[in-house]
Write a protein that binds this DNA or RNA. Structure first.
Ligand code: FES
Ligand code: FES
Lengths: 144, 144
DNA sequence: TTTATATCATATTAAATCTATATGAATAAC
DNA sequence: GTTATTCATATAGATTTAATATGATATAAA
C-alpha cells in the first residue's frame, strides 16, 4: 500500500517549482540539490511530467523548467496518477472488462471504497494549497 | 499504491470463514477450491492469521480452521494490517523517530491525509458487514 | 495399526518491480 | 568552442512479490 519514490519525488519536484514560480526557468540540478534527490533520477521523472505538458522546458545553458500553468491548476491527484497510474488498491478495478469475479465479489466493494477515499483526498489538494502550507511553515528553501 | 495478494487473499479467506461460520472446522483445501487460490499459498497466509489468534485450528483428519471470534469483531483494517503492515502510503509516517524531513515537509501532510482516509474506510467495515452484502448479492458459494 | 487427511514450519525460486546509474546526443547561452 | 542544460535510452543491482516445494507432526477413521 505504498506510493513509489517516483510519485513522491514528482510531488516534491512540482511543489518546488510552484514555490519558486517566479517566471525563471529552474534547472533540475537546483531541485536535486534542494530536495536531496539524485539528479539523474529526477531527470527521468521530469521527462515524464514534461511529456504530459505539465511543465515548460528550455534546453541549453540558462535553461530549465517552469510550471506550464498556475499552481492552483494542479491537483495532487493529477501528479500522482501521471507517475503511478490509477490510484486503485487492486487491479480488479482497472481491468477493461473488470475482473471476472467482480459481479459477485464482495471484497471489491471494499477496494472501491478505498479508491474513492484516496481520490477524494488527492483530487482536492492543489499545489497552491501546498505552497500556502509551506509559507505558513516558514519557507525553509532546503526542505519541501 | 496496491494491496498485495496476501492482503487481498487474506480478506477473501476470512470472509469465506465468516460466511461458513457454522461451528465446523473448515480445511484450507475447501477455501482454496472455492476461492481458486493456491492451497499452499493460502496455508502460508492462514498461518500468519492463526498466529495472530484470529482463527482457531484443529490438526489432523477432520481438522481445519474457524473464526476465533464473531464476524462483527473483525474489521477489514485488522486483517489488512496483519498482512500488509501499517496502511501508510509512505514510510515517513511509520519511522520510529519520523522522517528527518518530517517537521518541515509539506507533502507529508498529504500522505497523512491519505492514510487517515484509508483507515476511515477499512476500520469501519467488519466481516459481518461483508457477510450481509454477500447474502444480499445471492450467496453463490464459489464466488466471494 | 495403518492410512488418509490436515495443520505446521521452513526453504527455495522465478518473475516482477523498484530505484536508481550510465552513456551520450542535441541544444543554447556566453 | 566551451559550458550548461535538456532529451533519450540502456543497463543494473536490490528488493519484493507470489508462489512452489519439502517434509514433519497430529488426528480421525478404516
Ligand atoms: S477478485 Fe477481482 S473483483 Fe474480487
Ligand atoms: S520526505 Fe519524509 S516527511 Fe517528507
Amino acid at each position: 500500500m505504498k506510493i513509489s519514490t517516483k510519485g513522491r519525488y514528482a510531488l516534491r519536484l512540482m511543489l518546488d517549482l510552484a514555490v519558486n514560480n517566479t517566471g525563471e526557468f529552474i534547472p533540475i540540478k537546483r531541485i536535486a540539490e534542494r530536495q536531496e534527490i539524485s539528479e539523474k533520477y529526477l531527470e527521468q521523472i521530469i521527462t515524464q511530467i514534461s511529456r504530459a505538458g505539465f511543465v515548460k522546458s528550455v534546453r541549453g545553458s540558462q535553461g530549465g523548467y517552469q510550471l506550464a500553468h498556475k499552481p492552483e491548476d494542479y491537483t495532487v491527484g493529477m501528479i500522482l496518477r501521471l507517475m503511478e497510474g490509477e490510484l486503485s488498491p487492486v487491479a480488479c478495478l482497472d481491468e477493461p472488462g473488470g475482473c471476472e469475479r467482480a459481479d459477485r465479489c464482495v471484497t471489491v466493494e471494499v477496494w472501491q471504497a478505498i479508491k474513492e477515499a484516496v481520490e477524494n483526498v488527492v483530487d482536492n489538494i492543489t499545489l497552491a494549497d501546498l505552497v500556502k502550507r509551506y509559507q505558513e511553515k516558514g519557507e525553509c528553501e532546503y526542505y519541501i
